[in-house]
């Protein structure tokens, strides 16, 4: 198992370097010039060209690429934002924390509500509870996040004055954004769990469990649900990866300075170092998230754990 883990980590290195190369080249290929964004509208041609030199954009592509790769991967120096001239590694820290907090909260909300809905639907299949849960899931998938956000704000901030409408601070600032983002996840999980559970509830081992005289609750939560959750792990992984990219719309609506907003502002301003750093960090986070998902699989399902261990054995032979 440890070898498998180590191999996956080693694979991350060439992947991240490829991502870095790609984003570096792409940014410089698309139209739009950071120097133009930094000088005023009425600047002279000289001022503009001086700015290009100042940013190092007049040097040949390969020189810039070389400098970028050595700075990033050898010195771990992500440079300074063109726009604000502040250190990116310092700016990105709190932003990433906020986005991850939001992402984890949204994922927790989505998972708890999704699992409850899914189980209710599966254990009362074809009855009114099933239809109700599936309608809620349909609404969750179809409703755009920003619309949900605005409705929640209208209800909880304006009418009931319970939660703040925007900004950051304590956990109360993250509740509405987490729900807005998580709704889509709730729907996805509910549908997935329902179908997994229906699959699993018909399994022989569930009948075995019942025939042992276990309570229905034990049968569902101890035997059926853990098996039903296995395919959901993939979805959770994908969901978390999406979350960490930051939901730009939600961050804008709630004025949460997170990764999403940072990245999109960087893209709009063609702030190369910011975009590069964000994309590289996101790719690392995503790789780790996928690795954790695969490890979770192994932890939950001993058959997969055996497969990981045996695949290494095969290679050794």
């Amino acid at each position: 198992m440890l070898k498998y883990f180590a191999k996956r980590i080693l694979w991350m290195i060439p992947i991240v370097i490829c991502v870095a190369l790609l984003i570096f080249s792409l940014m410089r290929l698309i139209p739009g010039d950071p120097a133009r964004m930094l000088v005023s509208r009425d600047a002279t041609e000289e001022e503009y060209l001086n700015k290009r030199v100042e940013l190092g954009l007049d040097e040949p592509f390969l020189t810039q690429l070389g400098k970028f790769l050595t700075d990033t991967f050898l010195h771990f120096d992500f440079g300074k934002s063109y726009m604000t001239k502040t250190s990116i590694s310092r700016d990105i820290g709190p932003r990433m924390v906020r986005t991850m907090e939001l992402g984890l909260l949204a994922a927790a909300f989505a998972m708890i509500t999704g699992i409850l809905l899914g189980i209710t639907a599966a254990t009362h299949v074809k009855k009114w509870q099933d239809s109700l849960c599936m309608i809620i899931a349909l609404v969750g998938i179809s409703m755009p996040a920003f619309w949900a956000a605005l409705l929640l704000i209208m209800l909880f901030s304006v009418k009931l004055q319970l939660l703040p409408p925007s900004g950051i601070g304590g956990i109360q600032y993250y509740i509405l954004p987490a729900i807005s983002v998580g709704l889509y996840g709730t729907a996805t999980f509910a549908r997935q769990i329902r179908s997994s559970m229906l699959d699993v509830i018909g399994s022989d081992y569930v009948t075995t469990a019942r025939s042992k005289g276990l309570t229905e609750r034990e049968v569902i939560y101890k035997h059926a649900l853990p098996n039903a959750l296995i395919p959901t792990i993939t979805i959770i992984g994908g969901f978390l990866g999406q979350m960490f990219g930051g939901s730009i719309v939600i961050e804008t609506i709630f004025s949460i300075p997170g990764m999403g907003l940072y990245l999109i502002t960087g893209i709009n301003n063609r702030d190369y170092p910011v975009v590069q750093t964000c994309v590289i960090l996101l790719s690392i986070i995503f790789c780790i998230a996928m690795l954790l998902v695969d490890l979770a699989y192994a932890m939950v399902d001993p058959r997969i754990k055996a497969r990981y261990a045996s695949s290494k054995v095969k290679r050794n032979k």
Partner: peptide, 12 residues
């Protein structure tokens, strides 16, 4: 039960 292959919970 009839089919032993599926009668046991695979993850316990």
């Amino acid at each position: 039960f009839q089919d032993p292959m599926t009668a046991l919970n695979p993850i316990l």
